Amino acid sequence: MAVTLAEEIMLLSLDDASGAAKERQSAAWAVAGGILLDLVLAGRVAVDGGRVRVTDPNPTGVPLLDERLRLVTAWAAGRKQAPKVTQWLTKDHTKAVRATVDSLRGRGLVHAEQRKVLGLFPITRYPEADGSAERELRDRLRAVVLGGAEPDARTAGLLALVHGAKLHRLAFPDVPRKQVAPRLERITEGHWVTEDVRKAIRDMQAAMAAVTVATMVAATS
């Protein structure tokens, strides 16, 4: 079973050795967005005009995606107007992260470690257990962004999420943002995805930008 977009973003966020999540809040929005975009690519969900609509409630066969599909279907049911993407991301991002980490554990890619902060407060971290998926992921991203390789639709979507959530340092920790941002912009607007998916990606980017700004404002107020 292929690693999902949400799992790939989570792998980029989790520190391999300590298991701590880097850029936790922005990565959480991107994880929830990754699940939604995978459902778009699977033909189960449509995102247009900043709103999300379930087009096919049938399972994809991927447990992580199917549980979110079930939840978003129930959440959106009976509404007169399709709900906004920002509403779903705000509602689901924390739970989506937990579900995604559990999925990574189930695949054997990370494992849970119980630790205590200051010797008192218990926390759980998720260090790397099998680095093969992340190595393949980082090699693929570098080949596309730095090497000029042609991305497939899922890689283009992943890079659009990275760009929209401003997670450049997670994906390319040794490369200045200004060096990779123009290429990411071209990929987002490029011909690697169909027009409906391209619109969905733009809407997802706008939604993540909106919720990220709102979170930053709330944190400083």
Rank of each mutant, 00 (worst) to 15 (best):
L167G: 13
H163L: 05
V193D: 04
A77W: 05
R70C: 01
P59Y: 02
S132L: 01
I187G: 04
R51F: 11
R105A: 07
T212S: 15
A129Y: 09
A210S: 13
P63R: 09
A82P: 11
D196A: 11
V110P: 14
A200S: 15
D16V: 02
Q114Y: 08
K95S: 13
T4N: 02
P182E: 12
E150M: 10
T220Q: 04
L141M: 15
V54K: 10
A46Y: 01
A2F: 10
S221T: 13
T212C: 01
E195K: 12
L158E: 04
Q114P: 00
T215F: 10
V97S: 10
G50C: 10
T4I: 06
V52K: 01
A209Q: 14
G34D: 04
L41Y: 07
G34I: 03
G164H: 06
G106Q: 08
L89Y: 03
T4M: 08
G19C: 09
Q25K: 14
V117F: 12
R198M: 07
V211N: 07
G49E: 10
V162A: 05
Q25L: 09
Q81C: 01
L14W: 09
R198L: 06
F172C: 00
D130L: 02
A20L: 11
A149M: 02
G131Q: 03
L37H: 03
K166P: 00
V40I: 14
V3H: 06
